[in-house]
Write a protein that binds this DNA or RNA. Structure first.
Length: 1028
RNA sequence: GGGCGGUUAGCUCAGCGGUAGAGCACUACGUUGACAUCGUAGUGGCCACUGGUUCGAUCCCAGUACCGCCCA
């Protein structure tokens, strides 16, 4: 069968993929011939995802490692799977429902909504899997995992264990006290109405404003305000009845709990401890807040005084906590001003008492938003607040001078001081809306308690992070780790396995001491107690388990409550309602079996990264003791981008060490971010996104993979343009055509390495050994670019440019048989070594060029070593190559027509040169386009060519231009002369001879000798030219 | 403000103690038994700057300038 002129990637890729799949070629352990395992966990793409260039890069590198190990006989597992991606997926499905005009998720309810997501996943969830297959990713697809598998409501086909693992870990960490619930200030996304973690917040600098307002002192008090310069001289002294503050967020003034100044700030020392008035809100309920001293305010920034809104700013929160300032929440989940809770009048009254130092208890019901602002969006509220303060004359103003252009009259006006200034603003990385710090009940992982082993493991090298610079990033983050907010107010995710029940054991409603509730006591509980009852929380893997825990709890309650049946209801309201009805029922029936104790489950789900943090063990069947867990854990290499070192790598380290007692992987290879050809980050808004699939369509998957691999220098961001991919595609064509040439000349692959005798064959066999060693070294040290570029240069620059050309004349001679066998073997080694990088074209060539026992995917990685390098053959071929290049260069420079065949006159040659010439004459004749070499002398109309140990003359007759030839030789002379001078100078330096390594000195001497030989020949040629 | 990178041919980047390489682009020539998705020969670099260490520095160290990224 004859081969086409180029590789039809599109047709072949689909066919070859199908063959791999049919043969189960990627199954864990396929092609294993030794006991060592090699395991890679894919960074699970989002189930909503589609392949972007970063995935293509990431998975190409993983695939190279995996295919390389599989070919070397390791028991190899590349574990694929997908992440359920809480927010992203919920967003996609909600949008689809909206687009289809369907009722929204709140209308259809949680269970139906989750079902809809599962339906969606069945329809379109494997998009990215199919795209990864197109890239050639050799994952064990039969093991494809999903971070929500096994969750309640999961359909058939999704019965994996992942949910069990997640819940198991939550319960475990809960019981150890590492997971806890608390009311804290968290990052709140007003679009998705959920808490998010610090990492999901993107701080960006945006244009903003700084407003300056006066907070009048209470009761008309005044003080001497004194400003001094650096030398302590007074620059300003005035009597003030206010304190000026600057803010970028005026709407939060409504919830201020204090004004803070630095303790060392003498300007405000007289008024620390006094009260001032917030200059906004209904006049009759103006609120007073204390002026406090705290280290947080920077005396040199703004006025040096800072308003403290503990419930809406992280810095203020810290100040408030330190100083016992109440936290007044102003906004609801959508970022609108609160409309719930007490009236403003009542709220202001409570807050004022608090400001005077009274203990006012829980203030969550206090709503300090004036009635006219309630329900307004936060930005509308901001405008209104600014207008009101300005109208009242309490904005700090500046005198503004304007000169009338016509009359020249000066016009003075006081205008509010509003500074335009860039501010850092937090945005939700998914929603893109401004994040609001919000005081809410959330679940946290006390990461400080589990971070130690994760730090230790990297410090002592049990897990290596490459390139090393990322170790510092890892340490820096983990050493300053904050608690991790893991609860999300979403529906798609692992629901937190905590249930709540009313605490009926509080003293107020306990019985009178006889261990049983009489009717009066029961009535008290029914009427008043339930509403005020606190909650107890219990954590267990499922309802059955948690029911037992609650039964133990209520066993201690007075009769007859202690026999109540534990039942699950939707929420607290439902629980109160049901408990009341059950008590009422009991009141009538006196039948204790009618008594119910309702409990409700925490509605929140876990942060997606909590489950993906368990990816290494969850995919291997943990918490069951599976053979896979036994065999493949800890895994070997994690290949990932630096952007998820914190999100994912650090958390996997912490979690695996905590629950499985070992590191999740031995090596983390961190690659760069693929940028566009100008080095810009790819983004939809910039429109510079490169779609890997269209590149695959146009150039083939191998070309894309080769390009990305060639650019994968450690620690650098690859910059990708279509030109690069085109170059790699050309390389595919190149090796294809070299194979085609071989086939046309009767070369077959699948042969054992022949014991070749001809220098050319011995030379190329040695070159194969060299590149094999270099490729293994490069891959072993994750220098993917070196592996790719080395193979590229070898195949193109050695095999195609020289070996194939040398073989052409050999095919006509007595060495034809040996040369065919050698070429077959050489090309096989190329296919084998290129296969991890370019799996498709190599698999295709493998099949087309010989009888094969297995597909190339299961080929045996070459092991040929340095013993195959024949130094003599090497020297000789390098001499031949040098001569050919010298002749070509001379010809081209002298303008000899490419087709013209010249005589090659040997004017001088040493024994080695003569031997090389004799052994390779046909090659030289052909490639240099010269007639068989013959001894002679240089003469008129000849140009000179030198090679180590030999000089030649090429008669070009009338073509010669003496001046041009002189110039050419002088140019060469100058070049070599300069090099030789440098070397001579170095050798003349006694310090060099004393200090440099012997090897280096020897090398330098050899180099100089060669150059001097060169120079002598050039001089001779020039002399001759001049003589004629 | 803290941390981490980068600065090498026109462009994109390798190299990281012995005086510089690749691909692309460019110029000239060229269809010779596979390949024009090609071949041959060229052009092109004070390796950002200033000091230091060294026999020797693009490479190591310190500083400067500019450009990125991450965290506040």
């Amino acid at each position: 069968m004859s081969m086409d002129k180029s590789f039809d990637a599109r047709a072949a890729e689909a066919r070859i993929s199908a063959e791999w799949e049919r043969a189960n070629a990627f199954a864990a352990g396929a092609n294993a011939s030794r006991t060592e395992t090699f395991t890679v966990m894919i960074p699970p793409p989002n189930v909503t995802g589609s392949l972007h260039i970063g995935h293509a890069f990431n998975n190409t590198l993983q695939d190279i490692l995996v295919r390389w190990h599989r070919m070397r006989g390791f028991d190899t597992l590349w574990q694929p799977g997908q992440d359920h991606a809480g927010i992203a997926t919920q967003m996609v499905v909600e949008r689809r429902m909206a687009d289809a005009g369907e009722p929204d998720r709140r209308q259809i309810g949680r269970d139906s909504f989750v079902q809809k997501i599962w339906d969606w996943k069945r329809e379109s969830g494997d998009t990215i899997i199919n795209q990864l297959k197109r890239l050639g990713a050799s994952c064990d697809w039969s093991r494809n995992a999903f971070t929500m598998s096994g969750a309640p409501g999961a359909p058939a086909g999704e019965e994996g264990n992942f949910h069990d693992a997640v819940i198991r870990v939550f319960v475990d960490l809960y019981n150890k006290g590492i997971i806890y619930r608390g009311k804290r200030l968290v990052n709140w996304d007003p679009h998705f109405e959920t808490a998010i973690s610090d990492l999901e917040v993107e701080n960006r600098e945006v244009p903003g404003h700084m407003w300056h307002f006066r907070y009048p002192l209470a009761d008309g008090e005044t003080y001497e305000y004194v400003e001094r310069d650096a030398e302590g001289r007074v620059t300003l002294r005035e009597t003030r009845d206010y304190i000026a503050i600057a803010t970028t967020r005026p709407e939060t003034m409504l919830g201020d709990g204090a004004v803070a100044v630095h303790p060392s700030d003498e300007r405000y020392a007289p008024i620390v401890g006094k009260l001032c008035e917030i200059p906004v809100g209904p006049k009759e309920h103006r609120r007073l807040i204390p002026i406090i001293a705290d280290d947080y305010p920077d005396p040199d920034f703004g006025s040096g005084a800072v308003k403290i809104t503990g419930a809406h700013d992280f810095n203020d929160y810290g100040v408030a906590m330190r100083n016992g300032i109440p936290l007044y929440a102003l906004m609801d989940g959508r970022g609108a001003m609160r409309a719930d809770g007490l009236s403003h009048a009542d709220s202001a009254e409570i807050a004022t008492r608090a400001a005077r130092g009274e203990d006012v208890g829980d203030v969550s019901n206090v709503n300090l938003v004036p009635e006219d602002l309630r329900g307004l969006d936060r930005y509308d509220a901001r405008r209104r607040v600014i207008e009101a303060i300005t109208a009242e004359g309490l904005a700090v103003t500046l005198l503004h001078k304007e000169i009338d252009p016509e009359t020249g009259a000066e016009h003075l006006e006081r205008r509010p001081l509003i500074e335009d200034k860039p501010i850092m603003q937090p945005f939700g990385d998914r929603s893109g809306v401004v994040i609001e710090p919000m005081l809410t009940d959330q679940w946290f992982v006390d990461t400080a308690r589990i971070v130690g082993p994760a730090l230790e493991a990297v410090r002592d090298g049990r897990t290596r992070i490459l390139p090393e610079q990322h170790r510092k990033v890892y340490f820096n983050w983990l050493e300053n780790i904050e608690p991790w907010t893991i609860s999300r107010q979403l529906w798609w995710g692992h629901q937190i396995p905590v249930w709540y029940g009313l605490d009926l054991g509080v003293a107020d409603f306990a019985d009178d001491g006889d261990g049983a509730l009489d009717e009066v006591e029961m009535f008290g509980l029914l009427v008043d107690g339930l509403v005020h009852a606190g909650e107890r929380q219990r954590c267990a893997a499922d309802f059955e388990a948690v029911r037992k825990l609650f039964r133990d709890d209520i066993a201690g309650l007075p009769q007859p409550l202690e026999v109540s049946r534990v039942v699950e209801v939707a929420d607290r309201d439902a629980a109160i309602d049901l408990l009341a009805r059950s008590l009422a029922d009991y009141g009538l029936s006196q039948d204790p079996t009618h008594l119910l104790y309702p409990v409700w489950r925490d509605p929140d789900v876990l942060d997606t990264w909590f489950s993906s943090g368990l990816w290494p063990i969850g995919t291997l069947g943990w918490p069951d003791k599976t053979p896979e867990m036994e065999r493949y854990f800890p895994t070997d290499v994690l290949v990932t981008g630096f952007d998820i070192i914190f999100f994912w790598v650090a958390r996997m380290m912490m979690m695996q060490l905590e629950v499985a007692g070992d590191v999740p992987f031995h090596t983390v290879y961190v690659h760069g971010l693929v940028r566009d050809e100008k080095g810009a980050k790819m983004s939809k808004s910039k429109g510079n996104v490169i779609d890997p699939l269209s590149l695959i369509d146009e150039y083939g998957a191998d070309a894309l993979r080769m390009t990305l691999t060639g650019m994968a220098a450690m620690g650098r961001d690859p910059k990708l343009g279509p030109k690069h991919v085109e170059g790699a595609r050309n390389f595919v064509t190149k090796i294809w055509n070299a194979s085609r040439f071989a086939q046309m000349n009767g070369v077959r692959g699948g042969v054992a390495r022949p014991d070749s005798q001809h220098t050319v064959n011995r030379w190329i066999i040695g070159e194969v050994a060299r590149i094999r060693i270099a490729t293994d070294e490069a891959l072993a040290s994750y220098r993917f670019n070196d592996a790719a570029n080395g193979l590229y240069a070898f195949v193109w620059g050695k095999v195609c440019d020289w070996y194939v050309e040398f073989a052409k004349p050999l095919f006509d001679g007595e060495d034809a048989g040996e040369t065919r066998a050698t070429m077959g073997w050489v090309l096989d080694q190329c296919y084998l070594m290129l296969h991890p990088i370019m799996p498709f074209v190599t698999e295709e060539l493998w099949a087309l060029t010989g009888e094969r026992a297995t597909m190339l995917v299961h080929g045996d990685w070459p092991t040929c070593g340095a013993e195959l390098i024949d130094e003599a053959a090497d020297r000789q071929m390098n001499w031949v190559i040098a001569l050919i290049e010298a002749v070509r260069s001379a010809r081209a420079q002298m303008g000899v027509p490419a087709g013209a065949r010249l005589d090659l006159i040997v004017t001088e040659a040493d024994a080695a040169a003569r031997a090389a010439l004799a052994a390779n004459a046909p090659l030289i004749e052909r490639l240099a386009r010269v007639n068989p070499p013959a001894d002679g002398v240089a003469g008129k109309g000849m140009i000179a060519v030198a090679a180590p140990g030999a000089s030649f003359a090429l008669p070009i007759g009338d073509l010669i231009d003496v001046a041009a030839e002189t110039t050419r030789l002088q140019k060469a002379l100058a070049r070599s002369g300069k090099d030789a001078d440098g070397l001579r100078k170095r050798l003349a330096n006694p310090k060099f001879v004393e200090n440099a390594e012997a090897e280096v000195i020897e090398e330098t001497r050899e180099k100089l000798a060669a150059l001097e030989d060169d120079l002598a020949r050039l001089h001779a040629a020039l002399a001759q030219l001049a003589a004629l």
